[in-house]
Design a protein around this nucleic acid. Sequence first.
DNA 1: CCCCGCATGTGAATTTGTGCACGAAGATTT
DNA 2: AAATCTTCGTGCACAAATTCACATGCGGGG
Lengths: 259, 259
Amino acid sequence: MTVGRHIPEATVARLPVYLRALVEVADAKLATISSERLADLAGVNAAKVRKDLSYLGSYGTRGVGYDVEFLLYQISRQLGLTRDWPIVIVGVGNLGRALANYRGFAARGFRIVALLDADSDKVGERLGEHSIRHMSELDTVVKKEQVAIGVIATPAVVAQEVADRLVEAGVNSILNFAPTVISVPANVALRKVDLSIELQILSFYHQRAVIANDLAAGEGGLVAALDAVAERAAGGAGSRDRARKRDEDDGADVAISAG
Amino acid sequence: MTVGRHIPEATVARLPVYLRALVEVADAKLATISSERLADLAGVNAAKVRKDLSYLGSYGTRGVGYDVEFLLYQISRQLGLTRDWPIVIVGVGNLGRALANYRGFAARGFRIVALLDADSDKVGERLGEHSIRHMSELDTVVKKEQVAIGVIATPAVVAQEVADRLVEAGVNSILNFAPTVISVPANVALRKVDLSIELQILSFYHQRAVIANDLAAGEGGLVAALDAVAERAAGGAGSRDRARKRDEDDGADVAISAG
DNA sequence: CCCCGCATGTGAATTTGTGCACGAAGATTT
DNA sequence: AAATCTTCGTGCACAAATTCACATGCGGGG
């Protein structure tokens, strides 16, 4: 492989999935793994795994597979997980609290350095190993702690303002949980996690399934009535779509574990 | 347009975003909106908005734009939001609680009918307008309430089992927050939200930005950048045998990357 | 009533992503 | 040492998604 420059976005989005699978494999004390097996664990197809990994360089051994530890290291390195990144969480409501308690952060080298909230009543409250500080300290904290990533968990109305302040303070990567579109300068990386949007997307496919089901199940007037609608809504390729979705779905995913 | 058949997946994922923007526009008492303006609010490009909307049918008026109310209705209908969908949340930990309290669900017609957890100590605990029920009631609840969508907010280890039970009980749409890959039959719709994966993806782009920045920073910066690179290259070998702690991270998802 | 301007709808080109199929390379067996 | 088996790496064709560019058609002004 021509030394992986420019890793495709779709590939980048899958690397963390491979990483997680590899951690499990390593825990099981296996030294090597085939693309086939890794694909299985990651829920994708083997050719894709090989192509993805080839962007990182040729780290596999034909006839054998990939060295688990080495691959773990290479992926971690590409993802920038070999060092710690200080993060701040802005907005300590429902979601902010869940995030603050989420142990997956530290596990991957994301170190929470501060929890900020605009509500003076919350300031000072202890949460895990941090006490909540006031928004006004944002700039100070970011600069002092060299914050790399800002997590926005505020209500939608203030999200853009918070983003602006984060950028202003020097943060160049933002993870937005607020249910609104925010915009940032081109040099700032932005990702969003939107719970209600995920549900709505699911609702779309769910509705199709329901209609398809009704059609398959019954044969009364209902069927006739829905027929035209179903034709448009479900199309003919419903199940094919569904099957694909499982594999490739890389649109938006978020993850949290409930402790 | 030949009346929307087969709406592309990418388009489906954007419809909720348009919907949200349209709600705001409607609140502002505007009767029509141009693709340009809607694109702006949704953070995408105007041609994409037009093409997306064209899949729903030709609802715009040349020279004028789209009728806000009408478009709102059409999108809601496509997404299946004109009716209520009963949902259950399985796993009432950190995240499950946040989800249970999240107001965005009810707002769009997703009605939580039950909160389930395997921990007997939690059973009976009141949370909002529900009291937590035991996992063993899953089948009963799903059937009695005609549950449409199951939300998994459990630790990763039990996620697959929970998914299996949901499917078994008749749920055909699942939103998975557990930080693990789960598999379901082809006729079941599945989406995942993985918080730690989002952070890792962000970390990838962040790292790039850091290096690019260092490089652009001038001479001293160049040295620093090369240092950073060297550190990664060399440090890798050193920390190569780092044993990653297995930890349950959470998934969460997001959607955009900034260049 | 006709013309002009504006914004939609869409064919076509481009870019990005996927997956097959096969050659290459290393391991294992005979 | 050769034959065989396994599994990677990748060229290629196809599919999906994005973006451009412009013809089309509606509404308003004169």
